[in-house]
Design a protein around this nucleic acid. Structure first.
Length: 572
DNA sequence: ATTTCGAGCGCG
DNA sequence: AAAGCGCGCTCGAAAT
């Protein structure tokens, strides 16, 4: 196995720096491989020790930031038109931005590129594995966790640092070739241009109202204690652990309530006969609320910024969506009492915008179903329309409940949900019972009402291929040719993800130079924090960016965005 | 004692 | 009888 090596030049004096600046400005390299070594993982707590820059036909330049008083003298490194190649650019850009550097794109991220090329194949994307798989080269990572704050770095540390930057150039070449050969250029561009907004969102974070959270937590705990003791006495078992599905199942059976599982979908249909099940469900809801959200959110408040800084993972989901963690803002309960805990500082406003029914619009665009297109173009409410079509009565006579059931149908049946699943889905998500005959009838009438959807399902069912694409050309591979529902869902969810990323890039550009910050994105929603005086203008920019993002792919249906300005995330 | 796994459930 | 897609977090139980 070939061991990768590289020459490097260690720069620690002003004199060396000025010489190297000339070399960099004359580098003519279209690509700069850039890597950092830092004293830790937190840009608000830790420092950059080294900046390594690899160009073609030069040794790797290693800048030791601990040896320079004034870091601004290093800014020139980034002031050029070269494509900046990083592995996980988000990490490095967060540090560079916090340290005051302005890094101009375009960017190429080898980690994201690898994920684009391999989406659906469930492969790790760390640098060592990429080098091995794509270049047949072994790199050592032992020094990665070494102490980067020592006064004088070892030869081995510098050697390691230089290799990590140097390897980015051949890696970029191979990955770019893969991207081009598979027509993944557009999606790569979308992902790379979303890096900066992602960096900004993570650095900005959100402000939370800790005292309000504390109040809610106390309330929840009181409620929880009451429910627990009531349940334990009803089961005549003071040791019963209500969080153990195993124990709960046993306890229920001993009371003559035969259940296969203790999941919500198994319990809800029986609540009418056994009120105790309702109590169990209420206990679980309160417990989840308390442990997953009320108790854990304050733990994520950063000591330096006083805000929570969730981690966003581009392509965290195989469809192209972000995933989010620490904390996962994508799963904060919708109840306004919880969302009201996400606030803005005095003098600021929170702007909330979400795409209206974006996935259904993508479905309409994909299938070109005449009725769907007409409904969207006439500004009709699609859920009411579906209700009217499946219930066979005029929209004006549709009840609230019928509309809600139609909503479930619109989401479920477009993605290949079975009749059984539809019935269950409606129950779990909307608390509405649907009889078998009703579910069947809705299913049949739905596809009669939207013939192009029926055709779409037919085509996808017969298709024999183990990959599918979004409108940006984003590819997802899957192991079975017969993954019908994945084939339906991925282009829809994935195209909506494409649209979100494009919108964020537009938005990021338009907000440059303003005091408005992007502070969150949740699938089809974007959150901004703006000075009060600029809120209205920022809301316009946000709406425009999202519409423009949507219009990249939606040509036959209008893109609609709901925008609200308020003081917290619970604002209606 | 520590890691892994599945159940359950929050969100879009 | 039949169980839409995409995630992350928390717990208890099983596995190591």
């Amino acid at each position: 196995m070939e061991l990768f090596s590289s020459d490097y030049l260690y720069i620690s004096t002003a004199e060396q720096l000025s010489q190297v600046k000339t070399a960099i400005s004359q580098a003519r390299s279209r690509f700069f491989g850039i890597d950092l070594e830092t004293t830790g993982l937190d840009p608000y707590e830790n420092q950059i020790r080294l900046i390594q820059v690899a160009t073609s036909n030069n040794p790797v330049f290693i800048f030791d930031l601990f040896k320079f008083q004034d870091l601004s003298s290093l800014q020139d490194i980034f002031d050029n038109g070269a494509t900046k190649v990083f592995h996980n650019a988000k990490f490095d850009l967060k540090f560079l931005k916090t340290a005051g550097f302005v890094v101009n794109g375009p960017f190429f991220d080898t980690m994201l590129a690898y994920k684009i090329v391999t989406a659906g194949e469930y492969k790790g994307a760390n640098l060592k594995e990429l080098c091995f798989e794509l270049l047949g080269v072994e790199i050592e990572k032992e020094e990665q966790i070494s102490d980067w704050s020592v006064p004088d770095l070892t030869e081995s540390q510098l050697e390691y640092a230089s290799k990590d930057a140097a390897i980015l150039l051949p890696l970029q070449r191979v990955l770019m070739e893969e991207v081009m050969n598979n027509m993944l250029y557009q999606v790569a561009k979308i992902e790379f241009e979303a890096i900066e907004p992602t960096v900004e969102i993570e650095l900005n974070g959100m402000l939370i109202d800790s005292s309000k959270l504390e109040t809610l937590k106390t309330e929840a705990e009181t409620e929880l204690k009451i429910l627990q003791s009531e349940l334990q006495s009803e089961f005549q078992n003071s040791d019963l652990n209500l969080n153990s599905p195993q124990q709960v199942k046993k306890a229920l059976i001993s009371k003559g309530i035969e259940v296969k599982s203790t999941s919500k979908s198994a319990l809800v249909p029986l609540v009418g006969d056994f009120p105790i099940l309702g109590k169990i469900l209420r206990y679980r809801k309160e417990f989840k609320l308390n442990t997953s959200f009320l108790s854990s959110l304050p733990c994520h408040v950063h000591p330096k910024t006083g805000r929570v800084h969730p981690t966003l993972w581009q392509m965290g989901a195989v469809t192209g969506r972000y995933s989010c963690s620490n904390p996962n803002l994508q799963q904060i309960p919708r109840e306004s009492k919880v969302r009201e805990c996400f606030i803005v500082p005095p003098g600021k406003k929170l702007i909330i915008a979400d795409f209206s029914q974006i996935e259904l619009r993508v479905v309409a665009e994909l299938t070109q179903d005449k009725k769907m297109l007409a409904a969207f173009n006439n500004g009709e409410d699609l859920h009411s329309l579906t209700a009217s079509l499946v219930c066979q009565k005029p929209i004006s006579q549709i009840s609230k409940e019928e509309r809600t059931k139609a909503k479930a149908i619109n989401f479920g049946l477009t993605f290949g949900m079975s009749v059984f699943a539809l019935k269950n889905y409606t129950l779990i998500n909307y608390g509405l019972e649907m009889s078998w005959w009703q579910a069947w009838r809705f299913h049949d009438r739905f596809f009669e009402a939207y013939p192009a959807l029926k055709e779409w399902h037919q085509t996808e069912k017969e298709k024999m291929s183990s990959e599918c694409f979004t409108m940006s050309g984003r590819r997802r591979k899957f192991p079975e040719e017969s993954w019908f529902t994945v084939r339906l869902n991925t282009p829809v969810q994935g195209t909506a993800a494409d649209i979100m990323l494009i919108s964020l890039a537009f938005l990021f550009e338009k907000l440059k130079g303003t005091e408005t910050k992007i502070i969150g994105t949740i699938h089809d929603e974007i959150l901004l924090e703006a000075p009060e005086s600029q809120a209205a203008e920022a809301a316009n920019i946000l709406e425009d960016s999202m519409k423009k993002g949507g219009e990249t792919f939606l040509k036959s249906v209008p893109v609609e965005v709901d925008v609200k300005i308020g003081m917290n995330w619970g604002a209606k």
